[in-house]
Design a protein around this nucleic acid. Structure first.
Ligand SMILES: [Mn+2]
Ligand SMILES: [Mn+2]
Ligand SMILES: [Zn+2]
Ligand SMILES: [Zn+2]
Lengths: 145, 145
DNA sequence: GGGGTTGTTGCGAAAAGTTGCAATAGCAAA
DNA sequence: TTTGCTATTGCAACTTTTCGCAACAACCCC
């Protein structure tokens, strides 16, 4: 949140990009929101503070943050969600039936990362994965299929 | 391809859904296309055969196929791609730098599936995952970062 | 502080994707 | 073959996302 703000703003300039007020406002907005937010939610909040900011700018800045690995963009339950990247990357399991989402740690992917590295020399950079399936609760409710 | 056609068409009816000409045409079109196809590509091809088919129908049928696990919908390199599901599920590794995509087998995900099962009682149903990262080639070209 | 370079923004319009609703047409049953 | 039920489609309007381009403004240098 506020903690990362300075680091992130510095990062932008260190990478040779310009630190515009739009980028600062949008960054702050995502941080305030906390957790996942849609482009629409970010835009609505942003325009309340600064109505002059254009919708296209919000989309472009969100993509820009993803490019810098400062945020992630993920499809979850049919919604496209943005989230600020913290120190520890995390991922989600999402139930196909009830839609409930839970967090899972990055370590679950260690073996997968090892496989693609050994077999393909591919350096996986897993940011914000979504694992679809059926949660414990829905399995007991619906023990067929 | 043609091989699956009958099975798929039967599946639709066995599940209690209606076998409409639109669904057959769209299924054939994805099969002909082979591999990944965007909604737009499918729509363009479909309308050449049968211009009366509406764009909304194409989107709805594509979603319908995904619902039945007859197809998958995946974001890859900024494009939303549909693909017919074959006997063996497969996944992809995609290079963030050059965009090259390769196929990886389902077994790479076995440990991940085991983790979420043991820790969360979650039954993962991995269909068509995309693992982002840097391919071998781009690593040698660009050994920084 | 003023000036030049060029990355970014706002704007308008187009493209992509979604939705509600009335008309159509599968398909099962008679 | 005909009939009835209702899932599915086409249509049109709507929302969401993208794009090209001219105007703007960070940032660097003097
Ligand atoms: Mn998350
Ligand atoms: Mn594929
Ligand atoms: Zn559930
Ligand atoms: Zn590459």
């Amino acid at each position: 949140m506020t903690h990362y703000r300075l680091n992130y703003l510095n990062l932008i300039r260190e990478m040779g990009y310009r630190l515009t007020p739009q980028r600062q406002i949008i960054l702050d907005t995502i941080c305030e929101q906390g957790g996942h937010a849609t482009a629409r939610e970010v835009y609505e909040r942003v325009r309340q503070k600064t109505p002059s900011i254009n919708r296209a700018t919000v989309y472009r800045v969100l993509d820009f943050f993803c490019e810098l690995n400062l945020a992630t963009k993920t499809e979850l339950n049919g919604r496209t969600l943005y989230e600020i990247v913290g120190e520890e990357p995390h991922h989600h399991i999402v139930c196909n039936q009830c839609g409930q989402a839970a967090v899972v740690p990055d370590e679950y992917f260690n073996e997968l990362t090892a496989h693609v590295w050994q077999q393909h020399g591919f350096k996986a950079e897993l940011k914000h994965m979504v694992i679809a399936g059926v949660c414990r609760h829905c399995q007991t409710l619906n023990p067929n299929t």
